Computed example of a mutant assay.
Amino acid sequence: MPTNVRAAIRAEIESIEALDALEAQQRQEALVWVDSGAELARLAKPATPPMHLVSYFAVVAPGHLLLVDHKNAQLWLPSGGHVEPDEHPRETVARELIEELGFAPPHPIGAPLMITRNDTVGLTAGHTDVSLWYVVQASRDQALHFDRDEFHAVRWFAFDEVPLERSDPHMARFLRKLAAQEATKSG
């Protein structure tokens, strides 16, 4: 990975203000990982290298979150994708938004709101995703053309109706962080 891309990824991670001790720990571990020189991008499916970078993007409308019923993970998740070699994570968001949901970002992609580290579950369990969580604002009327090979369905959920028991283990924390960000903007 070129030094400038690695430096840009490091800057993305550094820009995140931790919500809690867990995020602070995972942020620090991710910075150490980036600085180690290890390969950050997935080179071969499902798990080469066994830890790689993911760009999640939470598509949100006032009071609502768009989730995909992911066939492989068997969970309701934000859309997202693996960061390709030499790709900035924000480019991953723009590329995957078109590939997975069929629309271009309606605004420039800002810095990530959150970082998490998870051991994967589902059909290709057993590797580790370091995920940068981006926010994409969209209308609930936005036309969607989702990837039916990857997802069973897509659905808007009110924030208080997100199926936390069948979602990313950090989803409740993300929703708290998103609410705090929204409160800061409006207050």
Results as ranks from 00 to 15, higher is better:
166 R>Y: 05
78 P>T: 11
182 E>P: 00
116 T>A: 15
136 V>Y: 00
186 S>A: 10
110 G>R: 14
110 G>K: 13
66 L>Q: 00
53 L>F: 11
110 G>S: 15
45 K>F: 11
145 H>K: 07
45 K>C: 07
36 S>I: 09
186 S>E: 08
138 A>W: 03
69 D>F: 00
47 A>L: 04
75 L>N: 07
125 A>Q: 14
129 D>M: 12
84 E>G: 03
34 V>Y: 00
143 A>R: 10
3 T>M: 14
166 R>D: 10
176 R>C: 04
60 V>S: 05
32 V>E: 15
1 M>I: 12
103 F>E: 01
173 R>F: 05
33 W>V: 05
145 H>Q: 09
182 E>K: 04
136 V>C: 01
145 H>G: 04
5 V>W: 05
26 Q>C: 07
118 N>A: 15
101 L>F: 03
122 G>P: 03
159 F>T: 03
76 W>K: 06
39 E>S: 06
63 G>E: 09
65 L>K: 03
9 I>G: 05
67 L>Y: 02
130 V>Q: 01
62 P>G: 06
18 A>V: 10
69 D>H: 04
125 A>T: 10
85 P>S: 13
54 V>Y: 01
178 L>R: 06
97 L>I: 05
150 E>I: 08
109 I>Q: 06
181 Q>P: 00
24 A>K: 03
122 G>T: 11
139 S>A: 03
32 V>D: 15
58 A>G: 06
92 T>Y: 03
183 A>K: 10
